[in-house]
Measured scan of single mutants.
Amino acid sequence: MSRVPSPPPPAEMSSGPVAESWCYTQIKVVKFSYMWTINNFSFCREEMGEVIKSSTFSSGANDKLKWCLRVNPKGLDEESKDYLSLYLLLVSCPKSEVRAKFKFSILNAKGEETKAMESQRAYRFVQGKDWGFKKFIRRDFLLDEANGLLPDDKLTLFCEVSVVQDSVNISGQNTMNMVKVPECRLADELGGLWENSRFTDCCLCVAGQEFQAHKAILAARSPVFSAMFEHEMEESKKNRVEINDVEPEVFKEMMCFIYTGKAPNLDKMADDLLAAADKYALERLKVMCEDALCSNLSVENAAEILILADLHSADQLKTQAVDFINYHASDVLETSGWKSMVVSHPHLVAEAYRSLASAQCPFLGPPRKRLKQS
């Protein structure tokens, strides 16, 4: 649940008159999402009104509101027999009622949201009550392989729920002597030191190019640089560091992050930047690179990204790559990247197969709970 924001200063709310007192009302909304995959969808019983329910879910471990999704594969009634019906059901509720908006969509073979439908307002739910769409999607369109909505005969539904909580009022009075504290510009100011090479005390040599930097900042941000300058190493004695395995453009992006906490060109060089972040123990930059690479996972590059993640101990990226390969196994196994990995990294192939087997055979063990970014 997000923290209630402070109200904007009255002088910034309007260029008009300023009242002596004010009130700011925040209506709290808890948002969460749920993904439900139905394997072997074409084998569902086709009687009209037949119901399939998901397991229950909530916004978190401490949330007492429990929900589930309900599907009628062949419609709810005679009117909707040519459609799939989809509903959000409130299973248990400690209150007399709650209000919530919802959005349903289908994830296609690429994991993209399609055929989205959402409620136009927050509906009133009581325990045992459901709301949804009797005519969510035509069955003939859903079952047509050309539309790519049932890869490997799996129907994957994605649901986003927004639950309306209580409202909170914050009130106060205006004073004539309003003090406005300026925003912190530390990142910009440190970035200026790097860009202008002011007050530098060490030189970093990268592929024949020299960059002036500040030992204190490098040591504070990177345990690797800290070790170089702290001990009686040649880098500490000469205040000069030779860097041979990072390209200059990648190095500059890494230094921008060290000084400012930002990497504006990360998406263009996420793979190389991940390697640099791993070498210099820049954990936050490493996770930022993992996130960017996750966003660009595809059938063509899944094997290469899995190898990269394994090489640099990028655990979150590795998990996402394995899950992606499992979901698109029939396509990924035909790529040149996968065939190369079979020869060069057989242990990763074995890991992917083990994960695929456990996903398809849940009876082999208890269900695993899916539970950071600093």
Rank of each mutant, 00 (worst) to 15 (best):
P5Y: 10
P8L: 02
E12D: 01
M13L: 07
S15H: 07
C23Q: 04
T25F: 12
I27H: 10
I27S: 04
K28P: 13
K31I: 05
F32K: 09
S33T: 06
N39W: 09
N40G: 11
S42F: 04
S42T: 10
I52K: 03
S54M: 00
S58G: 09
S59D: 12
S59R: 02
K64T: 03
W67A: 14
R70S: 14
N72S: 04
K74C: 13
K74V: 15
K74T: 15
D77K: 10
E78G: 07
Y83A: 13
L89S: 05
A100W: 00
F102H: 00
K103H: 14
I106M: 15
K110H: 05
E113H: 11
K115E: 10
A116D: 11
A116C: 12
R124V: 12
K129E: 15
D130A: 03
R139V: 11
D140L: 09
F141C: 09
N147C: 08
L150V: 07
L155E: 00
V161Q: 14
D166P: 00
I170N: 02
I170S: 02
M178T: 02
K180T: 03
E183G: 02
E189C: 02
L193K: 01
W194E: 07
E195V: 04
N196E: 15
S197C: 15
D201G: 10
C202S: 15
C202G: 15
C203P: 15
V206K: 01
E210I: 15
F211P: 00
F211Y: 15
H214R: 00
K215A: 13
A216N: 11
A219V: 11
R221L: 15
P223C: 15
F225Q: 00
M228Y: 14
F229T: 15
H231T: 15
H231P: 11
E235N: 09
R240G: 01
E247D: 03
K252M: 06
E253D: 01
M255T: 07
P264A: 10
M269T: 07
D272L: 03
L274K: 00
L274M: 02
L285P: 01
V287A: 04
L293I: 15
C294L: 11
N296Y: 14
I305K: 02
I305T: 04
L311E: 10
L311R: 03
D315C: 10
Q320K: 08
Q320L: 05
N326V: 01
S330I: 12
L333V: 08
T335I: 00
K339N: 11
S340N: 11
M341S: 02
V342Y: 02
H347N: 04
L348C: 06
E351N: 08
S358P: 04
S358Y: 03
A359H: 02
P367A: 13
R368K: 15
R368L: 12
